[in-house]
């Protein structure tokens, strides 16, 4: 069951990502996606395999749900959050996009416990909120840094 849910969610998020008018260019989108992906992969590995704060299922079907969440759903939600932040014209809308994204990330991650993909051993939803807020911050800072670098190079070129 979980594989269907997370596959459908992946499809839905890809659809939303395409439908949104992405103000980031191809290079910026790639950098933000890959940095988020690398942080997400490393963090989940450290939390699950090294510190054993979360237990992950040993059933292959549910495990695919975990891989989809870690490697596709999480970076896509972060990307959508950043696109909405860039589109927002005032601070409140930007803050709502930021908070909305990490609350959604926390909700999706928590849903893994419902489907038996995760079992929180020494972990809870508050830690998840802090982790995803930090992940969003890393993604935003990555976007800002790369965007500035791109602008500098574009100015040099003109």
């Amino acid at each position: 069951m979980s594989i269907v849910v997370y596959f459908a969610l992946t499809w839905l998020l890809i659809g939303c990502f395409i439908a949104l008018n992405n103000k980031m260019n191809l290079m910026e989108s790639t950098v933000v996606f890959l940095v988020t992906l690398v942080v997400s992969i490393n963090a989940s590995w450290i939390l699950i395999e090294e510190m054993e704060l979360i237990q992950v299922t040993e059933q292959p079907e549910e495990y695919i749900g975990y891989l989809l969440n870690r490697s596709v759903i999480t970076p896509l939600i972060v990307m959508i959050g950043i696109i909405l932040m860039i589109k927002s014209e005032n601070f409140i809308s930007k803050a709502i996009s930021y908070i909305g994204a990490f609350v959604l990330l926390t909700g999706v991650n928590y849903s893994l416990t419902y489907f038996g993909v995760f079992e929180f051993v020494n972990w809870n939803i508050i830690y998840d909120l802090i982790y995803f807020a930090a992940l969003m911050l890393i993604a935003v800072l990555t976007y800002k840094s790369y965007h500035n670098l791109y602008d500098k190079e574009a100015v040099k070129h003109t």
């Binding site: 290079m27 790639t30 950098v31 790369y146 670098l149 791109y150 500098k152 190079e153 040099k156 070129h157």
Partner: peptide, 8 residues
């Protein structure tokens, strides 16, 4: 390449 392509 420009720096942003190298970083990419």
């Amino acid at each position: 390449f420009p720096k942003h392509i190298t970083v990419l």
